[in-house]
């Protein structure tokens, strides 16, 4: 099943089984069904519960938190993750604070889903990976899923069980890919272990965790690219890497999911689509250095977008964003030059 269909199906299930769930967003009603068609056909079946809104992201995040405070479970689509900036006051000064500053008297169980990421030629304001702006906000949860995470299970949990605002970063490139869920510890060419809990961290290995040269932490829409680079490295150079893929990214960040792999490899690599500075990778590297300093035998390697706006033209965008080829090259030379 394509990921766009998987999300559409789970939204249908949520609307069917939870009368307090409402979908809101710009152009999400039929016949348009959302800019990425994720809510296709849902408004026909749930007429008053799939609600088209004006282009008012700043207020919509607030409207959703007001609904959530009164016992509803709003699911808000922000059409492009780039527009999350408009809702920042509501997130930072309102939704994320209410539970704490009102001393636990209210919960704000709203769910925001928003597509981020490039590779479609949408240019500087519709291609960004901006979750770094959200990751440091206490009181909210930020998720990003890969094609090997269960969109179904994670959506069901986050929308129906959470008490705080949850933001799901959906990489646009994943929508047209298939879900490839692990079965009996395998998925594609990979052996996979999965951590417990509602938001599992996956660890992938091509050689059943026997040994590897690096632990590559990545998430969301970068996983398919890292997998391809890892497979190619194995074929070309017999370099093995393990890939660690968390799904829960924000504060409080506990990177204990990286420990087991680091014990086998002694080398940490972080690959992300966002700009390199001051982001997820910076935090993981800092935490790894304080928590697992003795496990690290080599310098940390960072692979990320250049600290630059994302240009529109394909060849220019490709120079800014990390892609399969440069992930391969950086991993290869990083490992070979420092072994």
């Amino acid at each position: 099943m394509y990921i766009s269909e998987a999300i559409n199906k789970v939204l249908f299930e949520l609307l069917t089984t939870n009368p307090e769930v409402y979908l809101m967003g710009e152009d999400i009603e039929s016949p348009y069904g959302g800019a990425f068609k994720i809510t296709k056909n849902l408004s026909e079946q749930f007429k008053s519960r799939v609600i088209n809104t004006p282009i008012s992201e700043s207020s919509l995040v607030g409207v959703a938190s007001g609904m959530a405070m009164r016992g509803l479970r709003p699911v808000l689509e922000i059409m492009f993750g780039d527009f999350m900036t408009l809702g920042m006051d509501q997130l930072v000064n309102h939704a994320s604070k209410f539970h704490y500053m009102y001393n636990g008297q209210v919960d704000v169980p709203m769910f925001i889903r928003t597509p981020m990421g490039g590779r479609r030629g949408y240019g500087p304001t519709h291609s960004q990976t901006l979750e770094k702006l959200l990751l440091g906000i206490p009181g909210i949860k930020v998720l990003a899923l890969s094609q090997r995470h269960s969109f179904h299970d994670i959506y069901i949990h986050a929308v129906t069980k959470e008490k705080c605002p949850v933001i799901l970063i959906e990489n646009k490139a994943l929508y047209s890919m298939r879900q490839e869920l692990p079965e009996n510890g395998r998925s594609g060419d990979f052996f996979i272990t999965e951590s417990a809990g509602p938001y599992p961290c996956l660890t992938l290995s091509l050689n059943n965790f026997v040994s590897a040269d690096a632990t590559v932490v990545t998430y969301g829409g970068m996983l398919p690219l890292v997998e391809k680079a890892a497979t190619q490295l194995c074929l070309d150079e017999e370099i093995f890497v393990e890939i660690v893929v968390p799904s829960l990214l924000g504060v409080p960040l506990d990177i204990n999911w990286v420990e087991a792999s680091l014990r086998r490899t002694g080398r940490l690599v972080i690959v992300e689509e966002g700009t390199q500075s001051f982001g997820f990778g910076s935090e993981v590297a800092a935490l790894a250095c304080s928590k697992y300093f003795k496990l690290l035998k080599y310098p940390v390697i960072r692979i990320a977008a250049a600290d630059s706006p994302i240009p529109c033209a394909r060849h220019l965008e490709n120079l800014v964003l990390p892609n399969e080829a440069n992930i391969y090259q950086e991993l290869k030379w990083g490992i070979l030059n420092d072994s």
Binding site: S59, V61, G62, V63, G66, Q90
Partner: peptide, 11 residues
């Protein structure tokens, strides 16, 4: 607070 109040009214 105005959008939040609006969301409460919608709820």
């Amino acid at each position: 607070i105005v959008p939040v109040a609006t969301g409460i009214a919608l709820a």
